[in-house]
Design a protein around this nucleic acid. Structure first.
Lengths: 146, 146
DNA sequence: GTCTTAAATGAAAGTCTTTTTCAGTTGCAG
DNA sequence: CTGCAACTGAAAAAGACTTTCATTTAAGAC
């Protein structure tokens, strides 16, 4: 994830949003995270940076950040509404089933497939949502040693 | 969707679940639906078949049906937790943005792509989740006439 | 620097969704 | 038929998310 705090903060400002202490805290939390965090988790971790960070603010800030494209919601089969930083452009995620670590895959190779779908169904395709689950290299090793 | 009530009902029984009136009602509702329904919608529609169908039962039954593979949860970007009937085997969904009608796509052409992902990331891929959004033929026509 | 103001904040209350508990009911095997 | 485990709905509880509102704060103007 090639996303550093300053770039993302600027991005927020460029869209006319203030860079407040709570927002800094949320952004720092997300930059430091390697897996999707729920709003409650973001609040808990973010309080390290902004002691009285409220949950309401987390919700509001995530909404803004998602609008601006800094953050991306992740829906997984067994639970919804995690958030991870989004790198610019179209990407997909691979999520480890064991430890929830997320790897982003740049680029999207679904173009041809989507065209065939359009032909077959008569739909105009406007978007898609792909999440891949698996087991990351680390967790595979732990398996071996047990 | 090549899913008729009797086949699905048998499927439930084969997994050791009773076929009760509330469950019949839920199944009929889903068979009749052409778009994902939320638990609350399923309750409302299902009461046509079973007058005092409770919401709690809908939640419990959906969980069972999802386990058994009769039903599939649908997560869309702006809201979660719709449910549609699942046809056996691996399929993906195309959902109309306007009217929420769902078309299933049999077969999955992501094999090659997933292999490349596995190589690039070191993950063992265990599953994936693809939902495609678009505008269905009907809704496109309505657009034209407006 | 300091002032001003619109934007942003946290707490509290409210709403909506989902789960748990429990006493009563029902499908179905024998 | 009968018995019993599975299943049910109602009520209550827990949880997730939103709204409201008085106070605070960032950031541009001076």
């Amino acid at each position: 994830m090639a996303a550093d705090f300053d770039t993302l903060a600027d991005h927020l400002r460029e869209h006319g949003h203030k860079l407040t202490q709570p927002r800094r805290a949320i952004l720092k939390t997300l930059v430091a995270a390697s897996k999707p965090l729920s709003p409650a988790e973001i609040q808990a971790r973010g309080q390290a940076f902004c002691a009285d960070l409220g949950l309401v603010t987390v919700y509001r800030t995530l909404e803004i950040m998602a609008d601006v494209g800094i953050v991306r919601p992740v829906h997984v089969v067994d639970g919804c509404h995690g958030y991870v930083l989004a790198t610019p452009g179209h990407t997909h995620h691979v999520i480890c089933e064991r430890c929830n670590v997320v790897v982003e895959i740049a680029g999207c190779e679904l173009g041809g497939f989507l065209e065939r779908v359009a032909q077959r169904t008569g739909y105009t395709i406007t978007g898609h949502w792909l999440e891949i689950s698996g087991i990351c290299a680390d967790c595979q090793q732990h398996d071996d040693t047990q």
